[in-house]
């Protein structure tokens, strides 16, 4: 009924014909009837997001897919993405990038040994920020001991949320468009961040 009201409010001013309002409304009802039946049938279905899967698979319950530019940018987007991945992982979101420590030491200090090197213009980050969980951008580190599984578009169906790391160049990229389409197909919510 709300949809009908919206349609009516939107379409009525654009009508050029001199139809009687009642006739017009009846036609509109006929038009939206298929939509109503779709809505009813969808309500009878189980949740179609991957949440059904996720409930049985704790690995996917907090899986966040990151869509970002793999092509050459004016600056190194990968560093910013790695920084974002680190924060997400530190806050118990899964990005598919597994950072394993050779020393098998779970202390925060040891985490500093495998942090990605951040190339930043300024060091205005406060390392005491709670969400950083020990992240210190001033430390120069290597990623050579990381064990990483690179996520691809095929993983989008398993994620709970997709974060699109937009840059002006990536916004125009076919890769970005494809991943947004997949996200739409699998009905995944999207968060957009600007890098």
């Amino acid at each position: 009924h709300e949809s009908l009201t919206i349609l009516h409010a939107y379409l009525r001013p654009q009508m050029l014909s001199s139809e009687e309002p009642e006739e017009y409304v009846q036609k509109l009802k006929q038009t939206v009837r298929p939509l109503a039946s779709i809505a009813i049938s969808n309500n009878n279905l189980k949740p179609k997001l991957s949440s059904t899967l996720d409930e049985n698979d704790s690995g996917n319950a907090r899986f966040v897919y990151l869509s970002y530019s793999r092509t050459t940018e004016k600056w190194n987007v990968i560093h910013a993405v790695e920084r974002l991945i680190f924060v997400l992982e530190a806050n118990h979101f899964h990005t598919g990038v597994q950072m394993k420590n050779i020393n098998n030491n779970s202390s925060r200090e040891s985490d500093l040994h495998h942090l990605p090197k951040i190339q930043s213009k300024s060091s205005s980050i406060n390392p005491n920020d709670s969400y950083l969980h020990g992240f210190n951008p001033s430390i120069t580190t290597t990623t050579s001991i990381d064990t990483r599984r690179i996520m691809g578009p095929g993983d989008i169906r398993h994620c709970r949320v997709m974060i699109v790391c937009l840059t002006p160049k990536y916004f125009l990229n076919e890769h970005c468009l494809n991943e947004l389409r997949l996200c739409e197909i699998y009905q995944k919510p999207i968060l957009v961040v600007l890098l």
Partner: peptide, 26 residues
């Protein structure tokens, strides 16, 4: 749309991003 284009914005806005994620994941 969350702006993370500078270190300062990153520090300020990442907590917002995390909160939104938590909300979306319920």
């Amino acid at each position: 749309c969350i702006d993370l284009t500078t270190n300062e914005l990153f520090s300020r806005n990442v907590p917002i991003l995390l909160r939104r994620l938590e909300t979306m994941l319920g």
